[in-house]
Lab assay of single mutants.
Amino acid sequence: RELEAFAERFKQRRIKLGVTQADVGSALANLKIPGVGSLSQSTICRFESLTLSHNNMIALKPILQAWLEEAEGAQREKMNKP
Rank of each mutant, 00 (worst) to 15 (best):
L64V: 03
F47C: 00
L50Q: 11
C45D: 06
P34L: 05
P82D: 13
P62E: 03
R1L: 08
V19P: 01
P34C: 05
R14C: 01
N30E: 09
I44Y: 00
L28A: 03
E8L: 13
N55D: 07
L50F: 14
L39S: 03
P34G: 08
L17Q: 01
K81A: 15
N80R: 10
I33Q: 04
E4I: 15
I15N: 07
R13T: 12
E77R: 10
R76K: 12
I58K: 15
E4K: 14
T43R: 02
D23S: 10
L60T: 02
F10T: 01
A27D: 09
K81M: 09
K81P: 08
L50W: 04
R14M: 00
A22I: 05
I44P: 00
F10L: 02
A59T: 11
N30I: 14
K11N: 03
A7S: 05
L68S: 02
H54N: 08
C45L: 08
G73M: 08
Q65A: 10
L60S: 04
E2Q: 06
L17Y: 03
R1H: 03
L52M: 11
G18V: 05
S26L: 11
K32D: 13
A66F: 07
K61A: 08
A7P: 02
L60I: 04
W67T: 01
V24L: 08
R76P: 12
L31V: 12
V36K: 06
Q21P: 09
K16D: 13
K11I: 04
F47S: 01
K11H: 15
Q75F: 09
S40A: 07
E8T: 08
I58A: 14
A66L: 07
Q65I: 07
G25C: 13
G73E: 15
E48P: 00
L50H: 14
K61S: 06
I44F: 01
K61H: 04
M79R: 10
I15F: 03
Q65D: 13
L64P: 01
E77A: 09
E69D: 13
F10I: 01
K16P: 00
E70F: 05
S26Q: 15
G25M: 11
L3M: 10
A5T: 08
L39Y: 04
K32Y: 04
A22V: 04
F6K: 00
Q12N: 14
S42D: 14
E72I: 05
R14D: 00
L3D: 03
Q75M: 10
H54P: 14
A22R: 07
E4H: 15
R46P: 02
S53G: 10
F6Y: 07
M79E: 14
L3V: 09
S42I: 10
L39R: 02
L28Q: 01
E8D: 06
A59R: 09
L17E: 01
S40P: 06
W67G: 01
M57Y: 04
P34S: 08
A74M: 11
Q75T: 10
E8V: 13
I15M: 12
E4P: 03
A66D: 13
K32T: 13
R14L: 01
T20N: 04
I44C: 00
R46F: 05
R14W: 00
P82S: 11
L52G: 02
E70C: 07
L3Q: 04
Q21V: 08
A29I: 11
L17K: 02
Q21K: 15
R46I: 00
G37I: 07
E8W: 04
K78H: 13
N30D: 12
Q12C: 02
Q75D: 09
T20V: 02
S40R: 06
Q12K: 10
L52W: 02
P62D: 05
A7W: 01
P82A: 15
A74P: 09
I44L: 06
L64Y: 06
C45I: 12
L3N: 04
D23P: 00
A22D: 07
Q12L: 08
R9C: 12
A27V: 06
A71W: 05
A22H: 13
A22T: 08
K32N: 08
I44D: 00
S53D: 06
S49L: 05
P34A: 12
Q41K: 12
V24W: 01
R1V: 08
R14Q: 00
L64I: 03
N30A: 13
Q21N: 02
Q65E: 15
S53N: 07
V24D: 01
T51Y: 03
A66N: 11
K61N: 03
I58Q: 10
M79V: 12
E4G: 06
F6G: 00
S42M: 10
G35T: 15
G25T: 11
A29T: 06
G25K: 13
W67P: 01
I15G: 04
S26N: 15
W67K: 02
E4F: 09
G35Y: 01
A22Y: 14
L28I: 11
E72D: 04
K78N: 10
G37S: 09
E8M: 08
L39K: 03
K11T: 11
N56K: 13
L52I: 02
S40M: 03
P82E: 12
Q65Y: 08
S38R: 14
G73N: 12
L60V: 10
K81R: 15
R9D: 07
V19S: 09
L68P: 01
W67D: 03
E2T: 05
R46N: 14
S42Y: 05
P34D: 11
L17W: 03
L50Y: 12
N55Q: 12
E8C: 04
M79L: 12
I15Q: 11
W67H: 02
V36M: 05
W67A: 03
E2H: 05
G37F: 06
A66G: 10
E8I: 04
G73Y: 15
S42P: 05
L28E: 01
W67Y: 05
R13F: 05
S42A: 13
G35V: 01
V36S: 07
N56G: 11
I15H: 08
T20I: 01
G18M: 01
E69T: 08
C45H: 15
F6D: 02
A66Q: 09
K16T: 10
T20M: 02
Q75K: 12
R9Q: 09
S26Y: 15
F47E: 01
I15T: 09
G37R: 07
E77C: 08
L3T: 04
P82V: 09
I63H: 12
S49I: 02
A74S: 12
K32L: 07
A27K: 09
L28V: 08
A29E: 14
Q65R: 06
L31M: 12
M79C: 10
R1T: 11
L39H: 07
I63D: 03
A74L: 12
K16Q: 13
L50R: 13
A74W: 06
M79A: 12
L31Q: 10
F47R: 00
T51P: 00
E4C: 06
R13K: 09
V19I: 11
E69Q: 11
K81I: 07
P62H: 01
E8G: 09
L39A: 10
N55F: 05
T51N: 10
N30S: 15
G37A: 09
L17F: 04
V19F: 15
A27R: 08
P34F: 07
S42K: 15
E2G: 07
F10E: 00
L3R: 01
I63W: 08
I33Y: 05
D23N: 08
T51H: 12
Q12I: 06
V19E: 03
E48H: 00
R76F: 10
L39M: 13
P62M: 01
L31F: 11
L17T: 01
R13E: 08
T43G: 02
I44Q: 00
L50D: 03
L3P: 03
R9F: 05
P34Y: 03
I63G: 04
A74Q: 10
K16L: 08
A22C: 07
L68Y: 04
E70A: 08
I33G: 04
Q12P: 00
R13M: 10
E4R: 08
T20C: 12
Q75C: 11
E48W: 01
F10V: 01
L52E: 06
L50M: 14
S26A: 13
T51L: 11
N80I: 07
T51W: 02
V24F: 03
V24S: 01
P34Q: 10
L64M: 03
T43L: 14
P62S: 04
A22N: 15
E48F: 00
L31A: 09
Q12S: 09
L52Q: 02
L31G: 05
R46V: 02
R9K: 06
N80M: 12
Q75R: 10
S53H: 15
F6L: 03
R76M: 14
S40N: 09
S26F: 11
I33A: 06
G73F: 09
L64H: 00
E77N: 08
